[in-house]
Design a protein around this nucleic acid. Sequence first.
DNA 1: AAAGTTTAGTGTATCAAATACACTTTGTCA
DNA 2: TGACAAAGTGTATTTGATACACTAAACTTT
Lengths: 233, 233
Amino acid sequence: MRVAQAPKLDHSLAVTVDVVLFTIWEKKLAVLLVRRIKDPFSGVWALPGGFVRKDESVDEAALRELQEETSVSRVYLEQLYTFGDPDRDPRGRIITVSYYALINWENFQLRAKADTSEAKWFPVQKLPKPAFDHREIIRYALERLQHKVNYTTICFQLLPKEFTLSELQQAYEIILHQKLDKRNFRKKMIQLHILKDTGGMKTDGGPQRPAKLYSFTDVRVVKLQEKGIIVPF
Amino acid sequence: MRVAQAPKLDHSLAVTVDVVLFTIWEKKLAVLLVRRIKDPFSGVWALPGGFVRKDESVDEAALRELQEETSVSRVYLEQLYTFGDPDRDPRGRIITVSYYALINWENFQLRAKADTSEAKWFPVQKLPKPAFDHREIIRYALERLQHKVNYTTICFQLLPKEFTLSELQQAYEIILHQKLDKRNFRKKMIQLHILKDTGGMKTDGGPQRPAKLYSFTDVRVVKLQEKGIIVPF
DNA sequence: AAAGTTTAGTGTATCAAATACACTTTGTCA
DNA sequence: TGACAAAGTGTATTTGATACACTAAACTTT
Protein backbone atom coordinates (compact mmCIF):
# COMPACT_ATOMS: atom_id res chain seq x y z
CA MET A 1 0.00 0.00 0.00
CA ARG A 2 1.21 3.43 -0.90
CA VAL A 3 1.55 6.05 1.78
CA ALA A 4 1.12 9.67 0.83
CA GLN A 5 4.51 11.34 1.22
CA ALA A 6 3.84 14.66 -0.48
CA PRO A 7 0.83 16.17 1.27
CA LYS A 8 1.21 19.49 -0.52
CA LEU A 9 0.66 17.90 -3.88
CA ASP A 10 -1.39 14.78 -3.33
CA HIS A 11 -4.92 15.90 -2.68
CA SER A 12 -6.63 12.73 -3.80
CA LEU A 13 -9.44 11.29 -1.76
CA ALA A 14 -12.04 8.62 -2.34
CA VAL A 15 -15.56 9.75 -3.15
CA THR A 16 -18.63 7.58 -3.01
CA VAL A 17 -22.28 8.08 -3.77
CA ASP A 18 -25.14 6.71 -1.66
CA VAL A 19 -28.73 6.67 -2.81
CA VAL A 20 -31.84 6.63 -0.66
CA LEU A 21 -34.44 5.05 -2.94
CA PHE A 22 -37.99 5.58 -1.74
CA THR A 23 -41.16 3.91 -2.82
CA ILE A 24 -44.65 3.48 -1.45
CA TRP A 25 -45.06 -0.16 -0.64
CA GLU A 26 -48.00 -1.74 1.18
CA LYS A 27 -49.25 1.72 2.14
CA LYS A 28 -45.96 2.60 3.76
CA LEU A 29 -43.04 4.74 2.76
CA ALA A 30 -40.14 2.38 2.26
CA VAL A 31 -36.40 2.60 1.60
CA LEU A 32 -34.40 0.08 -0.40
CA LEU A 33 -31.36 -1.33 1.38
CA VAL A 34 -28.83 -3.86 0.15
CA ARG A 35 -26.95 -6.32 2.27
CA ARG A 36 -23.22 -5.73 2.26
CA ILE A 37 -21.05 -8.67 1.34
CA LYS A 38 -17.69 -7.07 2.07
CA ASP A 39 -16.07 -5.60 5.13
CA PRO A 40 -16.52 -3.21 6.76
CA PHE A 41 -20.08 -3.92 7.90
CA SER A 42 -20.23 -7.21 6.03
CA GLY A 43 -23.75 -8.62 6.29
CA VAL A 44 -25.18 -5.30 7.40
CA TRP A 45 -27.90 -3.47 5.48
CA ALA A 46 -26.71 -0.34 3.70
CA LEU A 47 -27.76 2.17 1.08
CA PRO A 48 -26.98 1.25 -2.50
CA GLY A 49 -23.89 3.13 -3.58
CA GLY A 50 -20.24 2.96 -4.45
CA PHE A 51 -17.17 4.74 -5.66
CA VAL A 52 -17.32 7.55 -8.16
CA ARG A 53 -15.17 6.77 -11.21
CA LYS A 54 -12.79 9.25 -12.79
CA ASP A 55 -14.66 9.49 -16.08
CA GLU A 56 -18.22 10.00 -14.88
CA SER A 57 -20.09 12.81 -13.17
CA VAL A 58 -21.25 12.31 -9.62
CA ASP A 59 -24.86 12.21 -10.83
CA GLU A 60 -23.95 9.53 -13.34
CA ALA A 61 -22.23 7.55 -10.61
CA ALA A 62 -25.39 7.65 -8.50
CA LEU A 63 -27.52 6.40 -11.40
CA ARG A 64 -24.98 3.72 -12.30
CA GLU A 65 -24.68 2.39 -8.78
CA LEU A 66 -28.43 2.31 -8.42
CA GLN A 67 -28.68 0.42 -11.68
CA GLU A 68 -25.92 -2.02 -10.75
CA GLU A 69 -27.13 -2.82 -7.27
CA THR A 70 -30.89 -2.69 -7.73
CA SER A 71 -31.51 -2.86 -11.50
CA VAL A 72 -33.38 0.40 -11.16
CA SER A 73 -33.07 3.07 -13.82
CA ARG A 74 -35.06 6.04 -15.09
CA VAL A 75 -35.89 7.31 -11.63
CA TYR A 76 -36.26 10.80 -10.24
CA LEU A 77 -32.89 11.51 -8.64
CA GLU A 78 -31.81 14.52 -6.63
CA GLN A 79 -28.64 15.34 -4.77
CA LEU A 80 -29.06 15.65 -1.03
CA TYR A 81 -25.95 16.52 0.88
CA THR A 82 -22.26 15.68 1.03
CA PHE A 83 -21.01 14.01 4.18
CA GLY A 84 -17.36 14.60 4.72
CA ASP A 85 -16.24 13.77 8.24
CA PRO A 86 -12.80 12.12 8.18
CA ASP A 87 -13.94 9.27 10.42
CA ARG A 88 -17.28 8.45 8.84
CA ASP A 89 -15.85 5.35 7.13
CA PRO A 90 -13.52 2.90 8.93
CA ARG A 91 -11.66 2.21 5.66
CA GLY A 92 -10.22 5.71 5.73
CA ARG A 93 -10.95 9.06 4.24
CA ILE A 94 -14.06 8.63 2.16
CA ILE A 95 -16.42 11.45 1.31
CA THR A 96 -19.91 10.54 0.23
CA VAL A 97 -22.31 12.51 -1.91
CA SER A 98 -25.81 11.41 -0.97
CA TYR A 99 -28.84 11.32 -3.24
CA TYR A 100 -32.43 10.40 -2.93
CA ALA A 101 -34.56 8.83 -5.61
CA LEU A 102 -38.23 8.05 -6.02
CA ILE A 103 -39.79 5.15 -7.86
CA ASN A 104 -43.26 3.88 -8.31
CA TRP A 105 -43.67 0.38 -6.94
CA GLU A 106 -45.04 -1.21 -10.12
CA ASN A 107 -42.09 0.10 -12.15
CA PHE A 108 -39.69 -1.41 -9.68
CA GLN A 109 -41.36 -4.80 -9.88
CA LEU A 110 -40.66 -5.03 -13.59
CA ARG A 111 -37.05 -4.02 -13.41
CA ALA A 112 -35.87 -5.85 -10.32
CA LYS A 113 -35.64 -9.28 -11.89
CA ALA A 114 -31.90 -9.33 -12.56
CA ASP A 115 -31.03 -8.77 -8.94
CA THR A 116 -27.75 -10.28 -7.91
CA SER A 117 -27.11 -9.02 -4.42
CA GLU A 118 -29.77 -9.15 -1.75
CA ALA A 119 -31.96 -6.05 -1.74
CA LYS A 120 -35.02 -5.39 0.38
CA TRP A 121 -37.55 -2.66 1.08
CA PHE A 122 -37.86 -1.45 4.65
CA PRO A 123 -40.63 0.85 5.90
CA VAL A 124 -39.01 4.02 7.24
CA GLN A 125 -40.58 3.32 10.61
CA LYS A 126 -38.92 -0.08 10.86
CA LEU A 127 -35.41 0.33 9.57
CA PRO A 128 -32.66 -2.00 10.69
CA LYS A 129 -29.55 -0.32 12.04
CA PRO A 130 -27.72 0.44 8.81
CA ALA A 131 -24.00 0.58 8.04
CA PHE A 132 -21.85 3.72 8.27
CA ASP A 133 -23.75 6.97 8.81
CA HIS A 134 -26.54 5.78 6.55
CA ARG A 135 -29.22 6.34 9.14
CA GLU A 136 -28.36 10.01 9.19
CA ILE A 137 -28.51 10.10 5.40
CA ILE A 138 -31.94 8.45 5.39
CA ARG A 139 -33.21 10.88 8.00
CA TYR A 140 -31.97 13.76 5.89
CA ALA A 141 -33.61 12.33 2.76
CA LEU A 142 -36.91 11.86 4.53
CA GLU A 143 -36.85 15.44 5.76
CA ARG A 144 -36.15 16.71 2.26
CA LEU A 145 -38.92 14.60 0.77
CA GLN A 146 -41.42 15.79 3.35
CA HIS A 147 -40.54 19.40 2.66
CA LYS A 148 -40.59 19.02 -1.09
CA VAL A 149 -44.03 17.44 -1.41
CA ASN A 150 -45.39 20.70 0.01
CA TYR A 151 -44.17 22.94 -2.77
CA THR A 152 -43.44 20.71 -5.76
CA THR A 153 -45.16 17.99 -7.73
CA ILE A 154 -42.51 15.48 -6.71
CA CYS A 155 -45.12 13.16 -5.26
CA PHE A 156 -46.12 12.04 -8.74
CA GLN A 157 -42.84 10.19 -9.06
CA LEU A 158 -44.18 7.66 -6.59
CA LEU A 159 -47.45 7.03 -8.40
CA PRO A 160 -48.35 5.25 -11.64
CA LYS A 161 -49.07 7.36 -14.72
CA GLU A 162 -52.79 7.36 -14.03
CA PHE A 163 -54.13 7.52 -10.51
CA THR A 164 -57.20 8.47 -8.58
CA LEU A 165 -57.44 11.48 -6.28
CA SER A 166 -57.77 9.10 -3.35
CA GLU A 167 -54.52 7.42 -4.29
CA LEU A 168 -52.81 10.78 -4.57
CA GLN A 169 -54.13 11.84 -1.19
CA GLN A 170 -53.01 8.57 0.32
CA ALA A 171 -49.49 9.15 -1.03
CA TYR A 172 -49.39 12.56 0.66
CA GLU A 173 -50.69 11.09 3.88
CA ILE A 174 -48.08 8.36 3.85
CA ILE A 175 -45.21 10.74 3.17
CA LEU A 176 -46.30 13.40 5.65
CA HIS A 177 -47.45 10.81 8.16
CA GLN A 178 -50.70 12.59 8.85
CA LYS A 179 -54.33 12.46 7.78
CA LEU A 180 -55.57 15.12 5.38
CA ASP A 181 -59.08 16.43 4.84
CA LYS A 182 -60.57 14.90 1.71
CA ARG A 183 -62.48 17.93 0.45
CA ASN A 184 -59.74 20.44 1.15
CA PHE A 185 -57.17 18.21 -0.46
CA ARG A 186 -59.17 17.81 -3.67
CA LYS A 187 -60.02 21.51 -3.80
CA LYS A 188 -56.36 22.42 -3.54
CA MET A 189 -55.12 19.88 -6.07
CA ILE A 190 -57.70 20.91 -8.64
CA GLN A 191 -57.06 24.64 -8.31
CA LEU A 192 -53.33 24.09 -8.83
CA HIS A 193 -54.08 23.02 -12.42
CA ILE A 194 -51.53 20.25 -12.33
CA LEU A 195 -54.01 17.44 -12.92
CA LYS A 196 -55.58 16.25 -16.13
CA ASP A 197 -58.76 14.19 -16.20
CA THR A 198 -57.87 11.22 -18.41
CA GLY A 199 -61.51 10.22 -18.88
CA GLY A 200 -60.77 6.77 -17.56
CA MET A 201 -62.23 5.23 -14.44
CA LYS A 202 -60.73 2.85 -11.94
CA THR A 203 -62.79 -0.03 -10.60
CA ASP A 204 -61.09 -1.60 -7.67
CA GLY A 205 -62.88 -4.93 -7.73
CA GLY A 206 -64.63 -3.96 -4.55
CA PRO A 207 -68.29 -3.04 -4.10
CA GLN A 208 -67.70 0.69 -4.39
CA ARG A 209 -68.18 3.50 -6.83
CA PRO A 210 -65.35 3.68 -9.43
CA ALA A 211 -63.04 6.67 -9.27
CA LYS A 212 -61.94 9.05 -12.02
CA LEU A 213 -58.40 8.59 -13.23
CA TYR A 214 -56.09 11.58 -13.46
CA SER A 215 -52.63 12.14 -14.82
CA PHE A 216 -50.10 14.85 -14.23
CA THR A 217 -50.20 17.71 -16.80
CA ASP A 218 -46.44 18.25 -16.68
CA VAL A 219 -44.01 15.36 -17.07
CA ARG A 220 -41.41 17.25 -15.05
CA VAL A 221 -41.31 17.96 -11.33
CA VAL A 222 -42.63 21.49 -11.01
CA LYS A 223 -42.29 24.09 -8.28
CA LEU A 224 -45.48 25.59 -6.92
CA GLN A 225 -46.18 28.82 -5.06
CA GLU A 226 -42.92 30.67 -5.62
CA LYS A 227 -44.43 33.58 -3.76
CA GLY A 228 -42.34 36.56 -2.82
CA ILE A 229 -39.15 35.33 -4.33
CA ILE A 230 -37.55 37.02 -7.25
CA VAL A 231 -34.24 35.89 -8.64
CA PRO A 232 -32.48 38.77 -10.34
CA PHE A 233 -29.59 37.84 -12.60
CA MET B 1 3.78 11.13 -12.13
CA ARG B 2 1.95 7.97 -11.29
CA VAL B 3 -0.65 6.65 -13.67
CA ALA B 4 -3.54 4.70 -12.22
CA GLN B 5 -3.09 1.12 -13.36
CA ALA B 6 -5.63 -0.57 -11.13
CA PRO B 7 -8.92 1.15 -11.83
CA LYS B 8 -10.79 -1.31 -9.66
CA LEU B 9 -8.81 -0.28 -6.63
CA ASP B 10 -7.73 3.28 -7.15
CA HIS B 11 -10.79 5.41 -6.60
CA SER B 12 -8.99 8.53 -5.51
CA LEU B 13 -10.13 11.89 -6.80
CA ALA B 14 -9.38 15.47 -5.87
CA VAL B 15 -12.00 17.32 -3.87
CA THR B 16 -12.12 21.05 -3.39
CA VAL B 17 -14.36 23.42 -1.50
CA ASP B 18 -15.57 26.76 -2.83
CA VAL B 19 -17.24 29.38 -0.70
CA VAL B 20 -19.63 32.10 -1.80
CA LEU B 21 -19.20 34.75 0.88
CA PHE B 22 -22.01 37.31 0.89
CA THR B 23 -22.19 40.65 2.57
CA ILE B 24 -24.27 43.77 2.24
CA TRP B 25 -21.97 46.51 1.03
CA GLU B 26 -23.01 49.98 -0.07
CA LYS B 27 -26.64 48.90 -0.05
CA LYS B 28 -25.96 46.05 -2.40
CA LEU B 29 -25.63 42.32 -1.99
CA ALA B 30 -22.00 41.52 -2.75
CA VAL B 31 -19.85 38.43 -3.19
CA LEU B 32 -16.18 38.21 -2.31
CA LEU B 33 -13.92 37.01 -5.11
CA VAL B 34 -10.16 36.49 -5.08
CA ARG B 35 -7.86 36.89 -8.04
CA ARG B 36 -6.20 33.65 -9.04
CA ILE B 37 -2.41 33.70 -9.25
CA LYS B 38 -1.94 30.24 -10.70
CA ASP B 39 -3.09 28.52 -13.85
CA PRO B 40 -5.67 27.61 -14.89
CA PHE B 41 -7.51 30.92 -15.00
CA SER B 42 -4.51 32.85 -13.72
CA GLY B 43 -5.52 36.47 -13.15
CA VAL B 44 -9.21 35.63 -13.25
CA TRP B 45 -11.58 36.27 -10.33
CA ALA B 46 -12.73 33.16 -8.53
CA LEU B 47 -14.43 32.02 -5.36
CA PRO B 48 -12.19 31.48 -2.36
CA GLY B 49 -11.54 27.79 -1.98
CA GLY B 50 -9.07 24.99 -2.29
CA PHE B 51 -8.33 21.33 -1.78
CA VAL B 52 -9.79 19.32 1.05
CA ARG B 53 -7.07 17.72 3.13
CA LYS B 54 -7.13 14.14 4.27
CA ASP B 55 -7.36 14.91 7.96
CA GLU B 56 -10.13 17.48 8.00
CA SER B 57 -13.85 17.40 7.39
CA VAL B 58 -15.22 19.13 4.32
CA ASP B 59 -16.82 21.78 6.54
CA GLU B 60 -13.47 22.41 8.21
CA ALA B 61 -11.82 22.74 4.82
CA ALA B 62 -14.34 25.40 3.82
CA LEU B 63 -13.70 27.39 6.98
CA ARG B 64 -9.94 26.99 6.65
CA GLU B 65 -9.83 28.11 3.03
CA LEU B 66 -12.01 31.09 3.81
CA GLN B 67 -9.71 32.00 6.66
CA GLU B 68 -6.57 31.54 4.58
CA GLU B 69 -7.71 33.45 1.54
CA THR B 70 -9.80 36.19 3.11
CA SER B 71 -8.86 36.25 6.83
CA VAL B 72 -12.51 35.71 7.58
CA SER B 73 -13.55 33.42 10.41
CA ARG B 74 -16.57 32.90 12.65
CA VAL B 75 -19.07 33.24 9.85
CA TYR B 76 -22.36 31.54 9.20
CA LEU B 77 -21.50 28.74 6.79
CA GLU B 78 -23.80 26.28 5.04
CA GLN B 79 -23.20 23.60 2.48
CA LEU B 80 -24.83 24.27 -0.88
CA TYR B 81 -24.30 21.62 -3.49
CA THR B 82 -21.61 19.35 -4.88
CA PHE B 83 -20.59 19.89 -8.47
CA GLY B 84 -19.12 16.82 -10.02
CA ASP B 85 -18.91 17.02 -13.79
CA PRO B 86 -15.69 15.40 -15.01
CA ASP B 87 -14.83 18.40 -17.21
CA ARG B 88 -15.62 21.23 -14.83
CA ASP B 89 -11.92 21.81 -14.12
CA PRO B 90 -9.28 21.79 -16.89
CA ARG B 91 -6.71 20.34 -14.49
CA GLY B 92 -8.59 17.08 -14.44
CA ARG B 93 -11.12 15.32 -12.33
CA ILE B 94 -11.91 17.66 -9.48
CA ILE B 95 -15.15 17.56 -7.55
CA THR B 96 -16.10 20.65 -5.60
CA VAL B 97 -18.33 20.93 -2.58
CA SER B 98 -19.76 24.44 -2.56
CA TYR B 99 -20.71 26.47 0.47
CA TYR B 100 -22.14 29.87 1.11
CA ALA B 101 -21.33 32.11 4.01
CA LEU B 102 -22.69 35.36 5.38
CA ILE B 103 -20.80 38.12 7.11
CA ASN B 104 -21.66 41.53 8.38
CA TRP B 105 -19.64 44.22 6.63
CA GLU B 106 -18.22 45.82 9.76
CA ASN B 107 -16.92 42.47 11.02
CA PHE B 108 -15.17 41.89 7.76
CA GLN B 109 -13.47 45.27 7.88
CA LEU B 110 -11.78 44.37 11.16
CA ARG B 111 -10.57 40.97 10.11
CA ALA B 112 -9.41 41.62 6.58
CA LYS B 113 -6.17 43.33 7.51
CA ALA B 114 -3.82 40.40 6.97
CA ASP B 115 -4.86 39.95 3.37
CA THR B 116 -2.18 38.50 1.18
CA SER B 117 -3.85 37.77 -2.12
CA GLU B 118 -6.09 40.27 -3.84
CA ALA B 119 -9.70 40.02 -2.73
CA LYS B 120 -12.58 42.23 -3.72
CA TRP B 121 -16.33 42.56 -3.19
CA PHE B 122 -18.54 42.52 -6.26
CA PRO B 123 -22.24 43.36 -6.27
CA VAL B 124 -24.15 40.30 -7.50
CA GLN B 125 -25.56 42.41 -10.31
CA LYS B 126 -22.09 43.31 -11.57
CA LEU B 127 -20.01 40.20 -11.35
CA PRO B 128 -17.02 39.73 -13.61
CA LYS B 129 -16.95 36.48 -15.53
CA PRO B 130 -15.48 34.14 -12.91
CA ALA B 131 -13.22 31.11 -13.28
CA PHE B 132 -14.47 27.54 -13.66
CA ASP B 133 -18.20 27.03 -13.09
CA HIS B 134 -18.18 29.59 -10.31
CA ARG B 135 -20.92 31.64 -11.87
CA GLU B 136 -23.27 28.71 -11.59
CA ILE B 137 -22.25 28.22 -7.97
CA ILE B 138 -22.94 31.86 -7.18
CA ARG B 139 -26.33 31.69 -8.88
CA TYR B 140 -27.15 28.63 -6.82
CA ALA B 141 -26.03 30.36 -3.61
CA LEU B 142 -28.11 33.42 -4.36
CA GLU B 143 -31.17 31.32 -4.96
CA ARG B 144 -30.68 29.48 -1.69
CA LEU B 145 -30.17 32.71 0.22
CA GLN B 146 -33.31 34.24 -1.26
CA HIS B 147 -35.33 31.20 -0.30
CA LYS B 148 -33.91 30.98 3.18
CA VAL B 149 -34.56 34.54 4.26
CA ASN B 150 -38.25 33.73 3.86
CA TYR B 151 -38.41 31.03 6.48
CA THR B 152 -35.37 31.47 8.70
CA THR B 153 -33.66 34.23 10.65
CA ILE B 154 -30.56 33.88 8.48
CA CYS B 155 -30.72 37.56 7.53
CA PHE B 156 -29.35 38.57 10.90
CA GLN B 157 -25.98 37.17 9.94
CA LEU B 158 -25.58 40.10 7.59
CA LEU B 159 -26.40 42.77 10.17
CA PRO B 160 -24.53 44.17 13.18
CA LYS B 161 -25.57 42.99 16.66
CA GLU B 162 -27.89 45.95 17.09
CA PHE B 163 -29.89 47.33 14.20
CA THR B 164 -32.98 49.35 13.44
CA LEU B 165 -36.10 47.97 11.86
CA SER B 166 -35.40 50.07 8.79
CA GLU B 167 -31.97 48.51 8.45
CA LEU B 168 -33.49 45.05 8.76
CA GLN B 169 -36.09 45.86 6.14
CA GLN B 170 -33.43 47.23 3.86
CA ALA B 171 -31.46 44.00 4.18
CA TYR B 172 -34.52 42.01 3.11
CA GLU B 173 -35.14 44.36 0.23
CA ILE B 174 -31.58 44.06 -0.97
CA ILE B 175 -31.55 40.27 -0.77
CA LEU B 176 -34.96 39.78 -2.35
CA HIS B 177 -34.43 42.62 -4.80
CA GLN B 178 -37.86 44.08 -4.20
CA LYS B 179 -39.48 46.81 -2.14
CA LEU B 180 -41.46 45.78 0.93
CA ASP B 181 -44.28 47.60 2.70
CA LYS B 182 -42.99 49.27 5.85
CA ARG B 183 -45.99 48.70 8.10
CA ASN B 184 -46.57 45.11 7.06
CA PHE B 185 -42.89 44.32 7.43
CA ARG B 186 -42.73 45.68 10.97
CA LYS B 187 -45.99 44.01 11.96
CA LYS B 188 -44.68 40.66 10.79
CA MET B 189 -41.25 40.97 12.37
CA ILE B 190 -42.68 41.95 15.72
CA GLN B 191 -45.26 39.18 15.84
CA LEU B 192 -42.58 36.58 15.12
CA HIS B 193 -41.05 37.34 18.54
CA ILE B 194 -37.53 37.12 17.25
CA LEU B 195 -36.59 40.71 18.08
CA LYS B 196 -35.58 42.24 21.37
CA ASP B 197 -35.80 45.96 22.04
CA THR B 198 -32.35 46.85 23.35
CA GLY B 199 -33.48 50.21 24.69
CA GLY B 200 -30.84 51.99 22.65
CA MET B 201 -31.48 54.50 19.91
CA LYS B 202 -29.62 55.15 16.70
CA THR B 203 -29.01 58.71 15.50
CA ASP B 204 -27.78 58.72 11.98
CA GLY B 205 -26.22 62.19 11.98
CA GLY B 206 -28.98 63.37 9.69
CA PRO B 207 -31.88 65.66 10.58
CA GLN B 208 -34.30 62.85 11.26
CA ARG B 209 -35.96 61.16 14.18
CA PRO B 210 -33.67 58.54 15.85
CA ALA B 211 -34.68 54.88 15.53
CA LYS B 212 -35.00 52.20 18.17
CA LEU B 213 -32.26 49.59 18.19
CA TYR B 214 -33.17 45.92 18.21
CA SER B 215 -31.21 42.73 18.57
CA PHE B 216 -32.04 39.15 17.72
CA THR B 217 -33.44 37.10 20.63
CA ASP B 218 -31.77 33.87 19.49
CA VAL B 219 -28.08 33.75 18.65
CA ARG B 220 -28.66 30.83 16.29
CA VAL B 221 -30.31 30.80 12.86
CA VAL B 222 -33.87 29.65 13.53
CA LYS B 223 -36.51 28.11 11.27
CA LEU B 224 -39.88 29.79 11.19
CA GLN B 225 -43.33 28.56 10.14
CA GLU B 226 -42.75 24.81 9.91
CA LYS B 227 -46.41 24.46 9.01
CA GLY B 228 -47.84 21.17 7.91
CA ILE B 229 -44.66 19.21 8.14
CA ILE B 230 -44.20 16.44 10.61
CA VAL B 231 -41.06 14.40 10.73
CA PRO B 232 -41.77 10.97 12.14
CA PHE B 233 -38.74 8.94 13.26
C1' DA C 1 -84.77 -6.83 -7.59
C1' DA C 2 -84.20 -4.75 -3.30
C1' DA C 3 -81.27 -3.79 0.46
C1' DG C 4 -76.56 -3.32 2.08
C1' DT C 5 -71.82 -2.00 1.61
C1' DT C 6 -68.04 0.81 0.36
C1' DT C 7 -65.56 4.40 -1.56
C1' DA C 8 -66.19 8.63 -4.73
C1' DG C 9 -67.49 13.00 -4.91
C1' DT C 10 -69.22 17.65 -3.53
C1' DG C 11 -70.07 23.17 -0.88
C1' DT C 12 -70.17 26.52 2.61
C1' DA C 13 -69.12 29.08 6.68
C1' DT C 14 -65.33 30.51 9.65
C1' DC C 15 -60.82 31.87 10.82
C1' DA C 16 -56.15 33.39 10.00
C1' DA C 17 -52.82 35.57 7.33
C1' DA C 18 -51.37 38.74 3.65
C1' DT C 19 -52.07 42.90 1.46
C1' DA C 20 -53.03 47.78 0.44
C1' DC C 21 -52.75 52.17 1.99
C1' DA C 22 -51.46 57.74 4.56
C1' DC C 23 -50.72 60.42 8.25
C1' DT C 24 -48.41 61.81 12.79
C1' DT C 25 -44.14 61.94 15.63
C1' DT C 26 -39.63 63.28 16.84
C1' DG C 27 -35.09 64.84 16.92
C1' DT C 28 -31.66 67.56 14.11
C1' DC C 29 -30.10 71.26 11.41
C1' DA C 30 -30.26 75.80 9.56
C1' DT D 1 -38.61 78.20 15.58
C1' DG D 2 -39.54 76.40 11.32
C1' DA D 3 -38.14 73.10 7.84
C1' DC D 4 -36.51 68.58 7.05
C1' DA D 5 -36.23 63.60 6.99
C1' DA D 6 -36.84 59.30 8.49
C1' DA D 7 -39.41 56.76 12.38
C1' DG D 8 -43.38 55.01 13.76
C1' DT D 9 -48.33 53.62 13.79
C1' DG D 10 -53.90 51.11 12.48
C1' DT D 11 -57.59 49.52 9.79
C1' DA D 12 -60.22 47.64 6.08
C1' DT D 13 -60.04 44.23 2.39
C1' DT D 14 -58.73 40.23 0.15
C1' DT D 15 -57.01 35.77 -0.03
C1' DG D 16 -56.02 31.32 1.44
C1' DA D 17 -56.59 27.62 5.08
C1' DT D 18 -59.51 25.07 7.85
C1' DA D 19 -63.51 22.56 9.69
C1' DC D 20 -67.20 19.86 8.71
C1' DA D 21 -71.46 15.84 6.65
C1' DC D 22 -74.13 14.29 3.31
C1' DT D 23 -75.36 12.24 -1.49
C1' DA D 24 -73.87 9.35 -5.63
C1' DA D 25 -72.50 5.28 -7.88
C1' DA D 26 -71.26 0.74 -8.57
C1' DC D 27 -70.93 -3.85 -6.80
C1' DT D 28 -72.41 -7.69 -3.56
C1' DT D 29 -75.50 -10.24 -0.96
C1' DT D 30 -79.88 -12.15 -0.02
